[in-house]
């Protein structure tokens, strides 16, 4: 299939994009297009106008100065291959390297990915666990929001009309043990469940833990019960089992499922994959 008719403009600047989408609520920002175009082709999304920001130099590039700053138009492939990302938050590189396939990763962007907010996509889960900050520009200036607050519901974010994601900031987690693991859907390769863990270790003891779940839930979300169960423990089997059951309660109000992989299964798998994530993080 192909999309319905629409107008297309290439934004000359971020401000131009903001203006073009503020004036027209029927307009949508077009980044790499690898989330939006498939939806438009299936006529699940029918914007009247696309404002292409993919070429704006301001939105590109990855830098690491104390924190990691990823331009919203960075592609998944660029992020997966970035030495800075590998150093600051390797599990984000892992997650970006699991999006779609190599063709999709070449052109799909992180900004586009998080704006689309597919609950089963991989990067949001890591961004939530990592405590990333989404930087947004709008006509009234700039604002930022934590990844945790950014993802609200199925395909729903904190982003408003006339706003453009400019960059994603990730703290330096290079001293942490981290991992992202997922069970891919056999058809779509999206996550049936994806779990990200970030562990601050003090010897054999887990000083603090951050855990996020996606795929099983309507949006990527923190699992605070699991975090408590891991924090202060030596990550032994008892702690992992406790965390595995905690994560299942953490997400119980936000579960998502379908006929092939119902909520109950995804919930149970969140526990299994949490344990696997911790083991993967510890290497």
């Amino acid at each position: 299939m192909w999309p319905k008719e629409f107008d297309y403009v290439r934004a000359s600047s971020v401000d131009d994009a903001i203006q073009q989408t503020s004036d027209n609520t029927d307009a949508k920002i077009l980044a790499g297009g690898h989330s939006l175009l498939p939806a438009m082709k299936l006529r699940l999304s029918e914007p009247g106008k696309l404002v292409d920001i993919s070429r704006l130099a301001d939105l590109k590039g990855i830098s690491a100065n104390g924190t990691l700053s990823i331009g919203a138009m960075s592609t998944h492939a660029e992020i997966a291959a970035s030495a800075d990302v590998q150093q600051y938050c390797a599990s984000l590189a892992t997650a970006c390297g699991m999006v779609g396939d190599h063709q999709v990763r070449n052109f799909g962007t992180l900004g586009g990915n998080i704006a689309h907010a597919d609950p089963a996509s991989d990067p949001p889960t890591v961004l939530v666990a990592a405590g990333a900050t989404i930087h947004i520009k709008r006509s009234r200036g700039e604002r930022s929001v934590s990844a945790e607050d950014f993802f609200i519901d199925l395909f729903t974010t904190d982003l408003e009309d006339g706003e453009v994601i400019t960059r994603i900031e990730v703290p330096n987690l290079s001293g942490h043990k981290a991992a992202y693991v997922k069970m891919p859907h056999p058809a779509s390769r999206y996550a049936i469940v994806g779990v990200a863990v970030i562990l601050e270790m003090d010897g054999d003891t887990c000083k603090s833990a951050r855990v996020a779940v996606g795929g099983a839930t309507v949006s990527a979300m923190r699992a605070s019960g699991a975090e408590s169960a891991l924090s202060g423990s030596s990550l032994d089997d008892a702690a992992l089992n406790a965390a595995a059951s905690a994560v299942q309660s953490d997400i119980s109000d936000a579960l998502m499922g379908d006929v092939s992989y119902p909520e109950s299964y995804r919930q149970a798998m969140s526990g299994v994959y949490l344990k696997r994530a911790v083991k993967a993080a510890l290497g």
Binding site: Y8, L30, G33, L37, K41, D52, S54, Q103, V104, F107
Partner: peptide
């Protein structure tokens, strides 16, 4: 690139 996932204008 999957050329079904890009507009010609892009």
């Amino acid at each position: 690139l999957k050329s079904c996932t890009m507009l010609a204008v892009q």
